[in-house]
């Protein structure tokens, strides 16, 4: 945080560096791992580390999304997917030099792109000069909602959010209609009894 004292900034930067190193180690471990269950568990760990980096960088909402999607839902979904296929990755037929080259080139371009961005947490950056000050200063007064994110999502962009929710709801209904098969319902306490064994 820009307003923090000198030692706080050092602490935050040090933590971010350590966490990013650990993320790199986890990513290498994932690439070397051939057992897909291990890969999924390592990617869960990766997501938790990523979410913590986001917290250190003061982006708590992104951190929450990362934790919910990366560590929560995708672990469950990937386990479901592996359950349907197989647990072990087969040996690649050819050497992965071409994909590595593509990935390295894309990464280099992205890093080059960040050089043109304004400095991290620079208050004079264009994005902080556009509508953000108005939301921050007038939002709570005009809408009566104490949380700025809620004010923007539910009040300033209310119709937009309604449409988004509608799309997500429809997608959920579609998935349930496609995949949900009606099973004969077992009595609940019997299943619970089985669970305890």
């Amino acid at each position: 945080m820009a307003t923090g004292s000198r030692s706080e900034i050092i602490l935050e930067e040090l933590t971010a560096v350590v966490l990013l190193t650990l993320m790199g180690a986890a990513a290498i471990g994932m690439a070397r791992q051939r057992n897909l269950y291990g890969v999924v568990l390592l990617s869960g760990i990766y997501s938790f580390l990523m979410a913590t980096v986001m917290v250190v960088l003061d982006a708590v909402d992104v951190a929450m999304t990362e934790a919910a999607v990366g560590a929560g839902i995708s672990t469950v979904l990937l386990f479901g997917a592996i359950h349907l296929t197989g647990g072990t990755e087969s040996k690649p037929i050819h050497r992965p030099w071409l994909p590595l080259l593509v990935v390295a080139a894309t990464g280099a371009m992205l890093v080059y792109g960040t050089l043109g961005l304004p400095a991290f947490s620079d208050p004079g950056a264009p994005i902080h000069q556009h509508v953000a000050p108005r939301y921050l200063t007038e939002g709570p007064v005009k809408t009566g909602v104490p949380n700025v994110v809620t004010a923007v999502l539910a009040s300033y962009r209310g119709f937009d959010t309604l449409g988004e929710t509608f799309v997500v709801f429809t997608a959920g209904i579609g998935v349930i209609a496609l995949l949900g098969r009606r099973r004969p319902r077992r009595p609940i306490d019997k299943a619970g009894e089985e669970n305890k064994e």
């Binding site: 706080e8 935050e12 291990g38 760990i45 938790f48 979410a51 917290v55 934790a67």
Partner: peptide
């Protein structure tokens, strides 16, 4: 590793660590 369960155990503990780090960092940034 060596078993999947060891990884799951480590993952669970990493989650606890992340939780504690988050709680502490909210205090660091006031």
């Amino acid at each position: 590793g060596p078993t999947v369960f060891d990884r799951a155990l480590a993952g669970n503990a990493v989650g606890t660590m992340a939780m504690l780090l988050l709680a502490i960092f909210q205090f660091v940034s006031g």
